[in-house]
Design a protein around this nucleic acid. Structure first.
Lengths: 229, 229
DNA sequence: CTTGTCGGGTGTACGGCGTACACCCATCCT
DNA sequence: AGGATGGGTGTACGCCGTACACCCGACAAG
């Protein structure tokens, strides 16, 4: 009976996988800031230090989380030309990053901190390079191409003007006329975009469209370089 | 005499500017992690809470720091065509970011946290837009262009393969043959690049070159769009 | 059946963080 | 002379990551 009862009121045994999943769920829900060893442990009904029997420390846990979400990116399409293969891959990466908004920041921070990339990231980069090589890019150009896509390799595209609409009016925001006087070009652009979208859907700009626009511009540029041998 | 003595053993009076400068210096020296209210205060010979008489909280302090470093970016060149004007500006921004390695991350985090951009950032964006407008870009295209340059507007270009050479050999790194087997394309590329550079300078790739390569590819793409009206 | 080892969960504690709040004192205006 | 005020102080709270000692149940060897 004790065995029975235990399975009822005692949590399933901890494991690295269960911890990572809980961590990802927590980060998905509350952002990277809401992620703490203590909160993860609490969510698993366990004392914080228990986690350290399965992950070395928080850094290693973050690495594990990254691996988990990067593995969600679709495998490369087979039999497609390099351009659409890359396109699909990057868009898949972007979808992943939209599902896990914390991931872009964490991956970047990790790359910047000069810790070695995790296996899943390496695999992703490797297969991306493979697509380009198979598409006829000479090695040197692949190298440049990877740099060109830069952070975009992982589907980044920090939206600089992150949709200001729908935000409660900032009490100490500049009045519109002062805004227009001080930043005439931003204002012009903002108004044009607003007017543009108004006739289509809601306010703000279509991030997805902008993303694909930028992506295609880059891909076209690379294609030109490639065909010039 | 007390006045004299005071000026000798007492620190100059605190001020928002002095705090911001100290904070920037500290971040420059030790990275964003080394930046804490307590450390800043200590560096100024003052108790931590004293800072709060001049800045509302750490977030506002970060905003102030951003403003300070963004203001270091060169003003736009006058009388240049749009392309070289943008090019110079972005390269100047990049130089600033190399001087203050913490800045890119902080700015990005701030943009992502949907806090309003600081005045200096707004001014930078505004003048960047102004360059494009003056160069003959229609508003809509400027909008797209700003998205295209994306994080690169501020000179970003996260180097994905942050020069692995000169790092002490990671104890649990894969042996080269396994590396080659598992990530054939990365390996190929790494070897090609290494061989390439070997004949020129040190190992690793020339980040500055790669940055300008990517930048020019983007600018050329934009120019094509512009001239197509 | 005993006994020893050991993997995994626990409890306590430390040092660091941001910052709320009460305080105190020098300065200056009246 | 006196009261207000602005800037530096001290204490304290609640978070954080994690080192370290502990303890207990399961399982292997005798």
């Amino acid at each position: 009976m004790s065995g029975q009862a235990d399975t009822l009121h005692r949590r399933a045994p901890l494991s690295r996988q269960r911890i990572l999943s809980a961590a990802v769920a927590l980060a998905d829900a509350g952002g990277a800031d809401a992620l703490s060893m203590r909160k993860i442990a609490q969510g698993l009904g366990v004392v914080p230090m228990a986690l350290y029997k399965h992950v070395a420390n928080k850094d290693e846990l973050l690495d594990g989380m990254i691996d988990l979400v990067v593995a969600e990116i679709d495998p490369p399409a087979v039999g497609a030309d390099w351009k659409s293969a890359v396109r699909l891959r990057v868009l898949s990466a972007r979808r992943m990053l939209l599902r896990h908004p914390w991931a872009a920041g964490v991956i970047e921070a990790r790359l910047k901190a000069r810790t070695a990339p995790t296996p899943a990231v390496l695999a992703y980069l490797d297969s991306m390079i493979g697509i380009l090589r198979a598409g006829g890019f000479p090695v040197e150009l692949v190298h440049h191409a990877m740099h060109v896509m830069g952070s975009r390799v992982l589907g980044f595209s920090q939206e600089l003007f992150e949709d200001a609409s729908g935000r409660e009016p900032d009490p100490d925001a500049l009045p519109p006329e002062e805004m227009a006087a001080r930043y005439p070009h931003i204002t012009e652009l903002a108004m044009a975009v607003a007017h543009d979208r108004e006739s289509v859907v809601g306010p703000g700009c279509d991030d997805q469209f902008e993303f694909e626009f930028a992506l295609d511009l880059t891909l076209d540029g690379l294609e030109r370089l490639r065909s010039a041998s």
